[in-house]
Nucleic acid binder design. Structure first.
Lengths: 225, 225
DNA sequence: TCAAAAGTGTTGTTTCTACACCCATGG
DNA sequence: CCATGGGTGTAGAAACAACACTTTTGA
């Protein structure tokens, strides 16, 4: 699917829709992880009012489409990725949140591996940004991002979902770096390993890091049970 | 506002709205507490498809109305209560969830004191039901209820919101009964009191229970700081 | 042999759980 | 004086935080 075409379709829809009905959109906070930093995928806003500002990826929900399906569609369209973790976070519907009229948006976040070979950003205007560097975004998207980061920070100890941000096989050091990036804090190595191992989330793949200038670490993957 | 009139207005709106646009509603899970049981306010469904089934209280969101405002409106209209705790929980939009067409619903739960003098159920069809006794509800409302109960069970330890279910002044025994009803479990009295007192949620009002056939307990209220 | 990170265990502190007795009141 | 629930403390267990040394590898 051609993303440029889709953008204008979406814009068209926003502009044409009935002044007397409510539009429903999904916005996806697509998280990635690279260079020890939590990233988020953003696009240059295509609205005049927010010219040159970055915004989250979203689209209007079609009338014959589930909410979850709509956010999978946005994700697939923007990243080429299938089979990705998605979680609904909040729904926002302030009257003035969209300049084109009344748009209620259902917010999801998702976690993708930036190194995934299937990942193809199909638009020059779509880029990864370090979450920590973001000061403002178009619409209420900065607020949305903040809420999603907060949610992610609690999820991190409840389920192994964040491992979707890493390659299939990873070392405990990489995992700890990821946790530290998301939480914006330092963790004790021994306590971290103890805690993670008690969760029983990981499966030893019996391989080691390669080409590292020091003793290689063991590799793990998300356990299947 | 006349509730019967509003019901038919809402129904009218469902029936009349554009086949090609999405309707947005709010559904409120209004919790109460009475006779040591967690209750929820339900109404007889006014749709043919769900004749004689109970459903949650909700309404379509107006185009010039915030989501929060819409759920406050539903709450005020059904209970007469103002200034009540409301929390958004989830948004559901399965294609077939409403027989009249595509309706996406934003779910809130709220906590009211059944003994509040301002509480006036303005409709014969609106009644309190014990949460534990509910097997089925119209639409996907049983699922919605389950999600809200689960949310409430985690909130209970994170914030003092559940005290909205009790009268202004209450004893620790009443509070513990409430916790036990919500969690569907027994709690140790001494450990419960220790835990609650560490939270610093309560303020001693220097009064005691009256007319109890045993040593009266101290009364507390939600602390202002 | 050096540098860099991997791997690992113990101790003290805090939090959690289980548990029993005396007290104040009304009938 | 009896029945009923109010009020309280402690000891053992579990979870958590702080902390340092040896090992493996590549350069």
């Amino acid at each position: 699917m051609d993303s440029v075409k889709q953008i204008s379709l979406a814009q068209h829809a926003y502009e044409k829709r009935d002044r007397f009905s409510i539009a429903v959109s999904v916005d996806c906070v697509i998280f990635g992880y690279e260079d020890n930093e939590l990233k988020v995928l953003l696009i240059k806003s295509d609205l005049e009012e927010y010219e040159q500002q970055w915004s989250l990826l979203g689209d209007l929900v079609q009338i014959d489409e589930n909410l979850d399906d709509a956010s999978y569609r946005v994700l697939k369209w923007r990243t080429g990725l299938d089979d990705v973790y998605l979680e609904q976070v909040i729904t926002l519907g302030e009257l003035d949140r969209h300049p084109a009229g009344r748009v209620i948006t259902v917010v999801y976040y998702s976690l993708v591996n930036i190194q995934d070979h299937q990942l193809r950003l199909k638009d020059n205007e779509v880029h990864w940004h370090s979450v920590n560097d973001i000061q403002t975004l178009a619409f209420d998207h900065k607020h949305i991002l903040d809420v999603c980061v907060e949610k992610l920070r609690t999820r991190i100890w409840e389920s192994p979902v964040v491992m979707n941000l890493l390659p299939e096989k990873f070392s405990l050091r990489e995992l700890q770096n990821l946790y530290e990036a998301i939480l914006n804090t330092q963790l004790d190595r021994r306590n971290f390993r103890k805690k993670i191992s008690l969760m029983n989330w990981l499966e030893d793949v019996d391989e080691y890091e390669q080409d590292v200038p020091h003793r290689p670490g063991k590799l793990y993957r998300l356990s299947s049970h």
